[in-house]
Design a protein around this nucleic acid. Sequence first.
DNA 1: AAATATTATATATAATAGATATATAAATTT
DNA 2: AAATTTATATATCTATTATATATAATATTT
Lengths: 225, 225
Amino acid sequence: MLDNYILVVDDESRMRKLIKDFLAQKGYSILEAEDGERALEVFEENKNKINLILLDVMMPKLDGWSVLRQIRQESKVPIIMLTARGEEQDELFGFELGVDEYISKPFSPKILVARVEAILKRTNQDQKQVKEYGGIEIDKEGRTVKVDGKVIELSLREYELLTYLVENENIALSRDKILNNVWNYDYYGDSRTIDSHIKKIRHKLGKRGKYIKTMRGVGYKFEVK
Amino acid sequence: MLDNYILVVDDESRMRKLIKDFLAQKGYSILEAEDGERALEVFEENKNKINLILLDVMMPKLDGWSVLRQIRQESKVPIIMLTARGEEQDELFGFELGVDEYISKPFSPKILVARVEAILKRTNQDQKQVKEYGGIEIDKEGRTVKVDGKVIELSLREYELLTYLVENENIALSRDKILNNVWNYDYYGDSRTIDSHIKKIRHKLGKRGKYIKTMRGVGYKFEVK
DNA sequence: AAATATTATATATAATAGATATATAAATTT
DNA sequence: AAATTTATATATCTATTATATATAATATTT
């Protein structure tokens, strides 16, 4: 079974239930939110584990576009917008702003599942596949890491930190960003803590440890080269 | 073989009689229901012996889709939907929700029997297999577990928990997921309960108990290695 | 100007105390 | 009996600290 988390945001509970049922049956774990404000809360609390968001456009309090914009400030999580027919005007708008896909209501479950799967695959969020980065294999389902074919034991934080770096391959990550993403919400600890974990990970990765590059004055970057 | 019970749900008595005759001739035992509500009652009373359900879509009181959904809450019994032509729209819908097969009316007896047999065969085979995982044999039909050839006694929860882990071999399962799958959906118990059962299972599995790995900070994982 | 030395700052490393998660056994409830 | 809860022990992880080392910028000497 996979362990992809999908956040479903819609004000109609019937629609949420419907989507939930389809996706749950396909093995996805579902989180729900009944309006835009709640969506942001749920996202904030679970941002590390959410792999995709299904976002209704028309909602009370805070509409889908506003939610989209706010989430895009800090995250690249794939977002599928659920639109009613006749909202095509807005579509172009949304595409520019970082919408990954549209589904117009009413839709068939087949369409829904197909789009969800396509996007997860495309954005490489699919937990199911084992990915390889220059001798480092990461199996997200099994939560195991192999280096040159041999399993290495990583603690929870080490695993989270490594996968975060790896998922952001070739991107220099500031300590702040790392703290906000690997540690929970506002963590006021010493940022030397990161260094400490980096050291241990590098050691466990052996010669592959050099893929974690120090970006002096900034943070770290994972780069296979 | 000759003890397969099939529940036929259709509001037209002519249709029920027709189906009943075909299938009885092939040696199946038939239970009948003339509407959705009655279907649920009959199912409730005989759920352990019903091997397959033939379910008409259009019925008074409670339609086929509603019956399907309710039964799927608690059972994986194979269900064949009987649809009138022109209901193709809904088909996709149902497939995702756990329909095993469709037969559109009018149908030939040959089609009917062929589909019924195919499905019974398919679902029986799945159940019948005794699977082996590194010295641990699981016989789902017999609900027994052997370790290195010797039967071990497991309580209900222990059996359910072990088979859940084993069926998700090599996948790290969170306590939440385990609770949601092995216990009821809304079980608010202490998650130390899981540990307690894990301990007992490990003990009963003897040296094979080490296949249940502790994923610190996450949960457990079954892994033969 | 080039080479070297100084200084300031950032990161690496190792050791340790404190926090947390799990194992285990025993008690309680169902 | 079985399932769950509770209490305690144990193992493991995490954050912090202190110190060493690396690096970059600047100043000094050749």
